[in-house]
Design a protein around this nucleic acid. Structure first.
Length: 734
DNA sequence: AGCACGCCGACT
DNA sequence: GTCGGCGTGCTC
């Protein structure tokens, strides 16, 4: 700080003062002085002092409001040599901040998640052939010179590799002046995709759907299309054509995928169509790569990104299309810090920048379905599988009529079919969405149930590991031999099945079959990928898996899919239980029957008449959707006939249920406010039934209490919204 | 979100 | 007598 720009007391006297969003939950931008000669504009990414440290911030729109004591003002230290966030991106971040009731600085921080990427990537040292030649020629030297004689600049290692010589040969030549050092821009993280690389010839419904979609895409204006078609109907090929059209128009493309679906097989499929892979963006990207991708997305070198939900906040240079694949997937919701649904925010991003958005799912969410029905989204149907891949024959196994043998969980019907499939040299998949051996362990003598000491949910036995674990908070201990309550040895009994227990049962029935358990806790991502590949090659007969088998991977030999407990998840009180179960079971049964082999899906259930089972086996989901939408709306009607409502923003089962229950308890004293659970709320909003949106959010008890007091005092308002979010125990409200 | 400050319990 | 738990307050 120099004397000429500060007064005697150290206050900044810069002529320009600008708002800067800092990565902190402040209500608004902070004001900073701009030293003479520093060029900043809205969107500039800058380094500023904040308290005791230096942080990265972004210059925001608007003028300094003059409310801050000039003595407190600090100054921008540095402007990064990096494209400023453009107007659309700033509008988007502002919109998300307002909608999610999050301080704008925290939202902006999501766009700056690449620690040292804000300065340009350093140029890469390279070598170019000169006219000089070495005094003594050797075979290795000749190879190097021949390889480099294309006149282009080569990296040392690249040239060594191409010429089949060691880099010391090159160093020797460089020392004699045969090569000169030049600097070139760092290589792109991915090659440019070519929209015409392998354009497919689409037929029938796929062709029609693609043509339909392209009419909208080619307008290049904001629109939302909803592609809806069964597994294997070729949705990906259809939206690849939208990507091709956007690339031809010179715009960038973002493909959002649930994290788990971001697999090597998706990237390869993209490469087969476009001749190059898309850039990846997800949470466990290596830091160096993360920085490169961020940088090359902002500068427009990367044309297509395939990423998890956080990719939505990448500052693209000129984004022209977002695809949201598996649109219904709950993984699009972020439920910490900034609460958002990337699917919905993608639509907003498209609206702000005026480009098309495409939502894709075999089992669309109710919200998207309704948005399609009311004409907000353009539905595009792909009714059938293409090629010779028939849909599997699906049926229920009524467990009341075909009970499993004592101590088992597989009905004779399913066991019989597993035997047949394995006997034909084909594969069977058994799906049970429950990790471990048994979800509950109790003492046969005193009835003691093993409970987590930290959060009181049941401890799940994991027999492979010899542990009992809490699936909620991660607590674990060695499986005890004696009951901790009464001390009796060897009288602990496992209740209910997990995948490990099903594997045990399968091995009893088919000791000679190759059986494998796929469960997220048994292997890392790498190991899992190897296992999946091995299975696809036919190196297992029976696969027993949790949810992770539902996504992405195709097993050409899989001709039997057995759902061990189709009812699981239907009775947990989640208003979305039926919808979620339908989506999950559709995905799992969709794993079967791609090869033209006859294939079968069996759902073990005690409720064969349940609408979910009926929708799955009939393949006709319309009636199911209609019913679910009706149920949801009925549940959302305000009990007091007023128009206000509270939307609980968190919605994991534990959090939302607790919050919703607490709020409902509080409701009688909050007259005129009805409470919508997180699930039913969006539909009500879509239909415009509720005029108020109350998101309750607070970090501290006192925040909550003052909020509720204010709410009671204010009573229902005429219009507009009060936005607060809830993440503490609502019981402590009143 | 970080980070400092400050006030009460168990330890070298 | 100090180390360290996390409640509270502040950052242009």
């Amino acid at each position: 700080m120099t004397l000429d720009s500060t007064d005697l007391f150290g206050a900044v006297l810069d002529r320009r003062i600008v708002p800067v969003l800092v990565p902190m939950p402040a209500l608004k931008a902070y004001s900073y002085g701009v030293p003479d000669g520093l060029a900043v504009e809205p969107g500039s990414i800058v380094q500023v002092p904040l308290g005791p440290r230096l942080v990265v911030g972004v210059v925001w729109d608007g003028d300094d409001d003059g409310t801050v004591d000039p003595k407190k003002l600090k100054r921008i230290e540095k402007v990064f040599d990096c494209p400023p966030l453009n107007r659309d991106m700033r509008a988007f971040l502002d919109w998300v901040a307002a909608y999610t009731v999050t301080p704008p600085g925290l939202v902006a921080r999501m766009a700056l998640r690449a620690p040292t990427a804000f300065d340009p990537e350093p140029m890469v040292e390279a070598l170019r052939l000169t006219d000089r030649r070495p005094e003594r020629m050797t075979a290795a030297r000749e190879r190097v010179i021949a390889a480099a004689s294309d006149g282009l600049a080569w990296t040392r290692s690249g040239l060594a590799h191409a010429a089949g010589a060691s880099s010391s040969v090159i160093d020797g030549l460089a020392a004699q002046g045969v090569f000169e050092t030049v600097f070139m821009p760092p290589p792109p993280v991915v090659a440019a995709p070519d929209p015409d690389f392998a354009a497919p010839r689409l037929e029938g419904p796929q062709k029609e759907a693609a043509a339909d979609l392209l009419t909208t895409i080619e307008e290049g204006k904001f629109s939302v299309s909803l592609i809806d078609g069964v597994t294997g109907s070729g949705k990906t090929e259809v939206y690849f054509e939208a990507i091709a059209a956007t690339l031809r128009a010179g715009k960038q493309v973002l493909i959002l995928l649930p994290e788990i679906a971001l697999t090597a097989s998706f990237l390869e499929r993209f490469q087969d169509r476009f001749g190059a892979k898309p850039a990846e963006w997800h949470s466990d990207l290596a830091p160096r790569m993360r920085e490169k991708v961020w940088r090359q997305v902002t500068t427009g070198r990367v044309r297509v990104v395939a990423g998890a939900r956080s990719a939505l906040f990448l500052p693209f240079e000129e984004l022209g299309l977002i695809i949201v694949d598996e649109e219904h997937d709950p993984a699009y919701k972020q439920e910490d810090r900034v609460f958002y649904n990337a699917r919905d925010m993608a639509v907003v991003r498209g609206r702000i920048s005026g480009f098309p958005v495409v939502l894709v799912s075999a089992t669309p969410s109710l919200e998207s379905r309704v948005n399609g029905e009311v004409g907000r989204y353009r539905p595009i149907h792909l009714p059938t599988r293409f090629g010779d891949a028939a849909l599997p024959h699906l049926g229920v196994v009524d467990m009341r009529r075909h009970p499993p043998e004592r101590g088992g969980f597989l009905s004779p019907v399913l066991v019989n079919q597993i035997g047949k499939a394995v006997g034909r040299g084909e594969q069977a998949l058994l799906f049970l969405n429950r990790r471990g051996y048994a979800p509950l362990t109790l003492c046969r003598v005193c009835g003691h149930r093993f409970q987590c000491p930290d959060c009181s949910s049941w401890l799940v036995e994991h027999r492979f590991r010899g542990q009992i674990q809490c699936h909620h908070c991660g607590y674990s201990e060695r499986t005890p031999e004696a009951c901790p309550e009464c001390g009796t040895l060897d009288h602990l009994v496992a209740c209910g099945p997990g995948v490990e227990r099903i594997a045990e049962e399968v091995e009893r029935h088919f000791p000679e079959a190759r059986t494998i358990v796929l469960s997220s806790d048994l292997m890392g991502v790498k190991r899992l990928r190897l296992e999946l590949e091995a299975i696809a090659r036919g190196e297992a007969d029976i696969v027993i898996g949790t949810q992770l088998v539902a996504k992405g991977h195709n097993f050409p030999l899989m001709t039997l899919v057995g759902i061990v407990d189709a009812d699981l998840g239907l009775a947990n009180g989640d208003p979305r239980a039926a919808e979620r179960t339908f989506q999950l079971l559709s995905q799992v049964t969709g794993r079967a029957g791609r090869t033209g082999l006859k294939s079968l899906g069996l759902l073990q259930t005690y409720q064969p008449q349940h609408p979910v089972m009926q929708a799955i086996i009939s393949g006709d989901s319309d009636a199911f959707y209609e019913r679910e939408i009706h149920e949801r709306e009925r549940a959302a009607l305000p009990p007091f006939g007023r128009l206000a409502s509270i939307i609980v923003s968190a919605d994991t089962r534990h959090d939302a249920e607790g919050h919703a229950r607490g709020l409902r308890n509080a409701a009688p004293r909050v007259d005129g406010i009805s409470i919508l659970g997180p699930a039913e709320a969006p539909l009500a909003l879509i239909r415009g039934r509720h005029r108020f949106r109350l998101l309750v959010h607070g970090r501290r008890n006192s925040d909550m209490q003052s909020f509720v007091k204010a709410m009671i005092a204010a009573g229902p308002k005429e219009r507009g919204s009060i936005n607060v979010q809830l993440d503490i125990d609502p019981q402590s409200f009143l």
